[in-house]
């Protein structure tokens, strides 16, 4: 590829047909309140970790649902387990349990 001085750019498109939905199914089964997330962002705005590191709880919900488990695994490492995301959620999503389940799934 150095031959040309450029290479193929990987596609950033979410390919919903080829996502990894194992985590999504696991969370959906054990914490159905996660279905209620509407990406209002209150959780991410109040997040202790999110102010200093890449951690957005509402995005984590999206990544799970889009089958993008790798993104979830990277971000969740920055969680401080303070529970504020659950306190502010207007839809009553049990975020603490969602986080616990993610950690269980990834055996972190």
């Amino acid at each position: 590829m150095s031959k040309f001085g450029f290479k193929l750019t990987p596609s950033g498109t979410i390919n919903y047909d080829q996502g990894d939905f194992r985590l999504a199914e696991f969370i959906d089964q054990h914490e159905p309140s996660s279905r209620l997330c509407i990406s209002c962002g209150a959780c991410s705005a109040t997040c202790t970790g999110g102010a200093f590191a890449k951690l957005e709880m509402h995005k984590i919900h999206l990544f799970i649902k889009r089958g993008m488990s790798d993104n979830v695994k990277t971000q969740i490492q920055n969680c401080m387990y303070c529970g504020k995301c659950q306190l502010v959620c207007p839809r009553g999503v049990n975020n603490r349990n969602v986080i616990r389940l993610i950690l269980t799934h990834f055996k972190i």
């Binding site: 950033g12 979410i14 390919n15 999206l62």
Partner: peptide, 12 residues
Amino acid sequence: QDTLAGLPMKLT
């Protein structure tokens, strides 16, 4: 476009 994830999306 999944405007919440901020990414284009393709699905059948």
